[in-house]
Computed example of a mutant assay.
Amino acid sequence: MTEPVKRYSVPARFLHWIVAAFVFVAWPAGAIIKFVKEDVKLTFYMVHESLGFLILWLMLARLVVRLFVKPPPHLPMPALQRGVADTVHWSLYAALIIQPILGFLATNAWGFPFSLFGQWPIWSPIGKEPGIAPLLSSAHLVLGWTILVLFVAHFGGVLYHHVIRRDETLERML
């Protein structure tokens, strides 16, 4: 009889997949905003910014869960592979926390107050700051592409483990 799969906790799995779903909507919405017609552009901004704001709080919740609920041990793998996996994992955590903060601050620095889904105004520590707005927007853009690269690395690792190694890596998060 085989031993059952040691899975991540229910909160860890739930938060992982809800963040993934939100990123799969927020990232492409942000990437195409400059190409959409003016009559829907504000809707794209609202969805992109609101999901980004929720991603920030969900990632902070993920961090709390990660710190207080021990994840299952790594499956056996070479030390270099484990190091790459940990680096990608923690880089995604950092990027998905920093990215919404940069976007939020950039929005406000350009002089646009933020309201969650257009309904609930969110206070910002900065107001209109045209001197730093381009810097914040550029950092947000670069980090957005970095998140895509990290996602591709993460997904590539999942495929490698599931298709080639045929181990339980994917099942642990399902």
Results as ranks from 00 to 15, higher is better:
I55C: 06
A109H: 04
F14S: 00
P121I: 07
P100M: 05
Q119F: 11
W27H: 09
W110G: 04
P121Y: 06
K6E: 08
T146P: 14
W145A: 11
L150E: 02
I98T: 15
H154L: 15
F14L: 08
E171C: 10
I164E: 08
E129C: 11
S50I: 00
A20D: 03
Y8T: 07
L105H: 00
I147T: 10
V163K: 08
P134W: 08
L15F: 14
A26G: 10
A61C: 05
L67D: 11
S115N: 14
L159T: 01
E171S: 06
W145Q: 15
L75A: 01
V163R: 07
R7A: 14
L15A: 07
V36I: 06
P71E: 02
R13Y: 08
L102P: 03
D167H: 06
F104D: 00
G30A: 09
L102E: 00
A153E: 00
F112G: 10
E129G: 04
L80G: 12
Q119Y: 09
I101W: 05
T107H: 07
I101D: 07
G118F: 02
V69H: 15
Y45W: 13
W17A: 13
E3H: 05
I147N: 12
L60F: 11
E171M: 12
P73H: 07
S91H: 10
H48V: 00
A31E: 08
P125Q: 05
H162T: 11
V36S: 03
K128D: 10
S124I: 09
R166E: 12
L102K: 01
A31F: 03
A153W: 03
P28V: 05
G157W: 00
V65F: 10
G111P: 11
S91E: 11
F24S: 09
V36M: 00
P134D: 05
G103M: 00
P73T: 01
W27K: 10
R7V: 04
M46F: 00
G144L: 15
P113T: 14
F22C: 07
G111Y: 11
L174N: 07
I18G: 01
T2C: 09
W17G: 13
F114I: 12
L92N: 15
V36H: 07
F114H: 12
Y93S: 06
M59V: 09
I101Q: 13
F53A: 01
R66V: 07
A95E: 06
V64G: 13
W123K: 12
L135I: 15
A12D: 03
L96D: 13
A153V: 09
M46C: 04
L148I: 15
R82W: 01
A12Q: 08
V88D: 08
L92S: 09
D39N: 09
V5C: 05
F53M: 03
I97E: 05
K70R: 14
F151N: 05
A21K: 07
A139R: 06
V142Y: 15
P100N: 04
S124L: 05
F24C: 13
V142F: 15
R166D: 06
L75K: 02
A139H: 00
L80F: 15
V19A: 07
M1N: 03
L150F: 09
K128H: 13
I126C: 06
H162K: 13
W123N: 10
G103E: 04
L96K: 12
P71N: 01
F155V: 12
